[in-house]
Amino acid sequence: MQPFEYANPTTVKEAVGLLGNKWDEAAVLAGGTDLISLMKDYVYSPKRLVNIKNIKELGGIRADKAGLRIGAAATIDELAESPLVAKNFPSLAQAARGVTSPQIRNMGTVGGDLCQRPRCWYYRDGQGLLASPGGRSLVTNGENKYHAILGNGGPAKFVSASSLGPALIALGATLTLQSSSGSRKVAADKFFVTPSAEGSREIALLPNELLTEILVPMGGTKNATYEVRQKEALDWPLATASVALKMSGSTVSSARVVLGHVAPMPWAATQADQFLAGKSLTEAVAEDAAKAALSNATPLSQNAYKVQLARVAVKRALMAAAGARG
């Protein structure tokens, strides 16, 4: 790890004042589960860390009439254990519980989950986020079994590592980003982006902004998350689907199906959304919706199997949601 300066603000105002205009000037330290490893591997060496765990206003999970308010520094475990979350948003609780290490759940924060960097092994080996030294993609020509099968037409081939992103997008969450010049609200599905140049990030957050709160509207949806993960112990999912269904009787009036770990960002499977609208949810319908969700998949040389896994995730998430409370 390179040396750095450590700051420990107690208010959001102080915190954003400590951030920089470039990513290498300052980084937000929340749970540290990703950041510290990136720094140990010299993949990222910010000159200042701004600890946000002592900012009270960033913690906690509560509900008001606008919906469920999750502080960015609330831990994954708080989310996994929250009765409020379990009652209204099983998809979010399931996604949180998919982080099967108690240590990571205790340390990692909701904001950190959304802002964590991809696990692409070329990126982690110092080859850059796009892993294209000299303009040639190491991913395309190399070991890509864990890489993207959707949204991979550009230079970005990694997959978004966020566990909670798909659920939050499906649930229509809004994120609050604060800088010293003010705050802005970004819909969860606009928070994630696919970078096209080395040096840009896979989230819409700017270096001088702090993610402060996630607001999940009480939508009255049936929702569920299904992760395809090889190990029971701590392991990254190979594919995830999170779905939120607005029902009218036994008919789906509208659906949001969002895939995780299959694209450089959580992938809104709008074809599936359209397919599901107006249908009664049966296993056959779920299966067809899953096919629709993956209809645009463009697997790389070694990851066609992930298309199948993502389909299974969609189907199982839909069936789970159908059985879940609204």
Partner: peptide, 13 residues
């Protein structure tokens, strides 16, 4: 680094 905020001084490196 330049000092940045009186209320939240930074330590190190």
């Amino acid at each position: 680094l330049s000092p940045v905020a009186e209320a939240a001084p930074a330590s190190g490196p």
